[in-house]
Amino acid sequence: MSADVIAPPPPENPTEDWLREERIPHIWCPGCGIGTSVNCFTQALEESKLDRDNVVIVSGIGCTGRVAGYLKLDSFHTTHGRPIPFATGLKLANPKLKVIVYSGDGDLFAIGGNHFFHAARRNVDMTVICVNNMTYGMTGGQVTPTTPIGAKATTSPFGNIEEPFNLPFIAHSCGAVYVARWTSFHVRQLTKAIRDAIAKPGFTFVEVISPCPTLFSRRNRLGDGLDAMKFYKAHSEIRNGADTREVAISHQSKIICGKFVDITRTTWHDAQAAHLHRVMGNRFVPPRNWEHLIKSDPMEDLVAETIRDSSGDGS
């Protein structure tokens, strides 16, 4: 037997382990920021040391809606605007699942806005990651609820005149317990934000401002994806704990980034389990996989149920 020198296997991209490799290359354009956010997401999952069999990803429709299909997780590509109620069903039927919704600004805040508000209000335990590129990419660059005033889109060819949504403010006012915004330039901070959001019980929200070079930047003569990334680097201001009322984004102006909200509220599951246990006593039969939510002492239920808000300074 000859002593062949066996070359070490070439190292693998750390993201690779989380991808459905056979589906790569993906459909996203050169310079699109969605893939960058996916790196941060998989890095955050890696660092979270979760049992990956229990991690479920749910997407809606659109460019960001394709994220679910590229990840080697239990993945659901649902209907336009409805990933959050689908995710609600998953989580309610099996609270042991770690449920992530990954979708775009049009999907989550135009057609799906109502669902976002109510999931946040209920404090269903899930993390919503919104890649906000301020346009509908998949359908060809139409105006969205986050398109800044003055920006052009195929359905506002002379410039948008409607006030855009300030997503962190919406999330905060609807009851999200964790709210952060970063851009696809802030890869380290974004990774940490996603990791923190996933670790935190309750409805958590991370907005990722991201380039759409093909349909937003080009139409607005803002260059390519790299130009957008350079813009984020030059014009972002990190202001952790900022008042979410003051973080609205105007066209090509300062982008305030950071962790804005980090509070504690009883989750839907904790409240429901505690309340039913307290008022129904032994008549309450816990649903499958709810056993860990039931406290042995009914007084603990009362406490669990009544700690509605513990204030946080948001920093």
Partner: peptide
């Protein structure tokens, strides 16, 4: 109780894929 029928009709499908 969901916020509308669009939500209700897909929430049940999430639950089905969670085993219910």
């Amino acid at each position: 109780q969901m916020e509308d029928e669009l939500a209700a009709s897909i929430t049940i499908q999430g639950a089905v894929w969670a085993g219910a």
